[in-house]
Computed example of a mutant assay.
Amino acid sequence: MMPFSAILVVILLLAIALLHLLWAMGSHWPAADEATLAKTVVGSKGIKKMPPRLASLMVALVLTGAAHVVMAYAGLMQGFLLFQMYRILLVAMILVFSFRGLVAYVPQWRAMVPEQPFARFDQTRYGPLCILIAALLLDVALT
Rank of each mutant, 00 (worst) to 15 (best):
V10P: 03
V10M: 08
I11D: 00
L12Q: 00
L12M: 06
L14R: 00
L18D: 07
L22W: 10
W23D: 07
A24V: 10
M25L: 15
M25D: 08
G26N: 10
S27Q: 04
S27C: 07
H28W: 08
P30T: 10
A32W: 02
A32V: 10
D33S: 02
E34A: 01
L37Y: 04
L37E: 02
A38D: 03
V42F: 13
S44P: 06
S44G: 14
K45C: 09
I47P: 06
M50V: 05
M50Y: 00
P52R: 11
P52K: 09
R53E: 12
L54P: 07
L54W: 12
L54C: 06
L54I: 14
A55N: 08
S56Y: 08
S56F: 13
S56E: 06
L57S: 09
L57F: 13
V59W: 01
V62I: 12
V69S: 02
V70W: 03
A72M: 00
Y73C: 04
Y73S: 03
A74C: 05
A74D: 01
L76Y: 04
M77D: 08
Q78T: 09
G79S: 02
L81I: 09
L81P: 07
L81H: 10
R87G: 01
I88Q: 11
I88W: 12
L89T: 00
V91E: 11
A92L: 14
A92S: 14
L95C: 15
L95Q: 10
V96F: 12
R100H: 07
L102S: 10
Y105Q: 04
V106Y: 14
P107V: 08
W109H: 14
W109N: 13
R110C: 09
R110S: 12
M112D: 15
V113F: 15
E115Q: 15
F118P: 00
D122Q: 13
Y126S: 05
G127F: 11
P128S: 06
C130A: 13
A135P: 01
L136A: 03
L136Q: 02
V140L: 04
V140F: 02
T143D: 09
